[in-house]
Amino acid sequence: MILSVKNLCIAIDGKPAVRDLTFSVAAGEVLGVVGESGCGKSMVNMALMGLLPDGVSASAERMEACGIDLLRARSRDWRALRGGNMAMIFQNPMSALNPCLTIERQLTESVLHTHGGMSRASARAEALRLLDRVGIAHASARLKSYPHELSGGMAQRIMIAMAVASAPQLLIADEPTTALDVTVQAQILQLLEEIRQDTGMAMMMVSHDIGVIEQCAHRVQVMYSGQIVESGNVGEVIASPRHPYTRGLVAAQPGRNGQRPKSRLTTIDGSVIPITEEVEGCRFRSRCSRTDHHCVQPPTMQRTEANSHRESRCHW
């Protein structure tokens, strides 16, 4: 396993927010994480990268990445991990790049971080190779550009180049295509898939878009209000979701389940309960259409089929 997490809990100002997350990612595998805003997706990423802000703390029974125990990692270990075996790309590539520095400066920084004693000239050559790898034309001219001269798609390609500079074993992609046009999104997803096939890196792909996850992930885990509510093979989960929340999420997408144009879409009533709010029993209970007396007990993840790896946090 490249990444193995057991009972990860994250608290904001001492209040539990993310609760008992257990999951793992194998080498070369793409794990999709789906959830709506405020479900804790990004906080999990930050915890994995050791980037949680002040006042937010993480605890776990186990949290290991690339053979390193993240629970005991000191700042030196973190520095070696980030931009080493683990890398991350973000939702908005424009705000992730430094507007005052050229692409060359920013890209060679990643290269030099990986290859300590490299000369400036070879770092530049490596940067050119990376730009070429992520499909940027006229690479040497692009090195002189500043971020404002790039389109969103090109900026995201450069973020990917910086991330894969160190040939990471795990890439965390936090909504990498949300800010992009659909055609550009398709190109970026294709690029990530190509790199994954070439290098065998594992990916954790976080998105609110079920379509994106369906296209690029092998397994999916659905998050709701700080918990994993369903997990399993991507095709199976989307084709026949077990948890009422996943069911609602899939049905809310136009064009799924053969809805007729102009028909009423299925919605999930109510709104997401704040992630730090304490709830008795199931956290989805207040919005669920099929609740009974079992639902006042906190549900656990249960296997839904005898011989598959699908799990759902619902007693139904």
Binding site: E36, S37, H208, D209, I210, G248, L249, A252, Q253, P254, L265, T266, T267, I268, S271
Partner: peptide, 8 residues
């Protein structure tokens, strides 16, 4: 908007 809200 989030997917479930979009539908609403």
């Amino acid at each position: 908007l989030d997917v479930s809200v979009q539908a609403q």
